[in-house]
Design a protein around this nucleic acid. Structure first.
Lengths: 185, 185
DNA sequence: GCTTGTGGCCGAATAGGATTCGGCCAATAT
DNA sequence: ATATTGGCCGAATCCTATTCGGCCACAAGC
């Protein structure tokens, strides 16, 4: 789908605040992006064209940056998940390390504060492959050491959720109240 | 052939090996699940109905377990990403901790091997909210301590990739000290 | 070797949802 | 009070998903 040349108004950053409708739509689409506009409209109380318009805007503004099929790691032979902490000598070694993004086993690369410099999420076929990947990481100049946390079992793994907890219960008090997750209209 | 049993056939675990077509389709769909079957077919060299059939099978078998809209955390006010390591007293404290999954800020919960018991990926509005969440975690009986790694910047973050590195390059040998193995001019 | 059964592909036809189009209404600016 | 803008709705259109026969290749059986 190409944009009309006439109105090249790229209001990319122009995303005005999301309202309750947008939040709900995001929630539904994160859960299942194959829903029809008609069904979405039914859920939130809008017509299909109105929903279409909003979703288009959410995509245009970047609020939705991708619609992806999430695949079962087991099905593609990736049975080992690990988080790897990487310590580097000095600072600014980041660009070097980014080269490992070319391996499809690497899913995340973050710079973190704390006693480690970079944090990786990697998913490999087996421990042998993890070893191979670690070897590549050590090959990067400036890498001092790594610490790997191999995942034994995953209890929860989901995409970014649009909902936000408004009120955090006061600690220490075994509160009997509900978590009070999201805002609604 | 019992036709009346058409769809009751839950060959969930029956996923026979994925062939090259399936792999390619998975790759394309992870990248962008909104592509039409016609386009997918063009890319991999099959007709639209054939692709449809395969994708349906991939979903049925669980290879594709969800089709989701991936949203920009900034757009939903979640600017803080952190990984939290949780140490618990004893073993089997897991079920208790799973209760925090009710907070939409919690994206992942894993049991890991290493010097920590559980590993969480959490995304909150700000450090204040992270504090609130940590408080909830500490409220869980058996939680000894936590260590949080706050992400300063994310360089890569993507869903599970179907591709697998077939051959890991041999690690580079430390240059000077190598004996007379195979070095030549 | 030849036949039968099965799985998977294709092109064509149908059904269903995405997208477009006017028109209407409310809130804001003039 | 009136003009303007943004956003919604129902109806119409267009495109894509989905279905339907039929064809072909491969494997097991005679």
């Amino acid at each position: 789908m190409n944009l009309e040349a006439e109105d090249v108004r790229q209001n990319e950053g122009r995303a005005r605040e999301l309202d309750a409708f947008d939040r709900k739509l995001l929630g539904l689409l994160v859960e299942d992006a194959t829903r029809s506009y008609a069904e979405l409209g039914e859920q939130v109380g809008l017509s299909a064209p109105a929903v279409h318009e909003r979703v288009k805007r959410l995509k245009r503004s970047g609020a939705i940056h991708q619609t992806a099929a999430l695949i079962n790691p087991i099905a593609v032979q990736k049975t080992l998940l690990a988080f790897v902490h990487v310590d580097t000598a000095g600072w600014g070694k980041t660009p070097e390390l980014l080269g490992i993004a070319k391996y499809p086993e690497v899913e995340e690369i973050h710079s973190v504060a704390g006693d480690t410099c970079m944090l990786l999420k990697v998913r490999t076929k087996d421990s042998r492959a993890l070893e191979g990947l670690l070897a590549r990481i050590y090959d990067v100049p400036g890498v001092i050491r790594t610490r790997s946390y191999v995942v034994l079992s995953t209890h929860l793994e989901r995409p970014v959720q649009p909902a936000i907890t408004k009120e955090w219960p006061a600690p220490r008090l075994p509160a009997s109240s509900s978590p009070a997750t999201d805002a609604k209209g």
